[in-house]
């Protein structure tokens, strides 16, 4: 039916094809992936420590902490809630750490380096007599929140949310005073403590 078919020798063609198929197989091969290399999750924050130091009484140091060593997923994070003295003034220092890698990565210094892109907020829940004031400033004179001071009122308890915002609009209304409402940006950290004042 196909005259030109006669021009080719069937067996030659089969040989040619086999060679081609073999070549392609060699090309396609059976290559392997490489073994992975260890990765430090440089941005992961596993630990938030808030240190309260009583300005009148150097021995009154309270550490509130939230720790989730295995990062998102796995086990729940654990919270250590603070108990503060009523009607006192505390110096408040915040530290962010990645304790999943060895050695521990200090994220606080990264936040300090890019102070203009970060701000820590302290959201005070109902029932808690707690007022926070920023003590630190970035290069533009806007608050950061790694260091501040807090005054406690009468006894009581309530929630205190510590929030680290990346890329906030620090000049928006209320943001410099510590109101997160208009801050925008991304929340890199949001941990909730229950504070007791007695």
């Amino acid at each position: 039916m196909f005259n030109n078919k006669l021009k080719y020798s069937g067996s030659l063609r089969v040989k040619g094809l086999l060679t081609l198929v073999l070549t392609v197989f060699i090309l396609a091969g059976c290559s392997n992936s490489s073994d992975p290399e260890p990765v430090n999750d440089t941005e992961l924050i596993t630990t938030v420590n808030v240190t309260f130091t009583n300005t009148q009484d150097g021995s009154d140091v309270v550490i509130a902490s939230f720790q989730d060593i295995d990062g998102p997923g796995g086990n729940d994070g654990t919270t250590i809630n603070p108990t503060l003295t009523a009607n006192s003034t505390y110096r408040v220092e915040v530290a962010f750490l990645n304790e999943s890698s060895t050695p521990t990565i200090d994220i606080t210094s990264e936040v300090a380096t890019e102070a203009d892109e970060h701000q820590v907020f302290f959201e005070v829940g109902a029932g808690l007599n707690f007022t926070y004031t920023y003590s630190d400033q970035d290069l533009l004179g806007l608050p950061i929140g790694l260091v501040g001071s807090a005054t406690t009122g009468n006894a009581g308890n309530g929630s205190l949310n510590v929030v680290l915002v990346h890329m906030p609009s620090k000049t928006a209304t209320g943001v410099q005073q510590g109101d997160i409402t208009n801050a925008g940006g991304d929340e890199d950290v949001r941990v909730i403590f229950t504070v007791t004042i007695q």
Partner: peptide, 11 residues
Amino acid sequence: ITLTTRGAFPI
């Protein structure tokens, strides 16, 4: 639901 430094998330 797991509690992380970014709040609670479902697993």
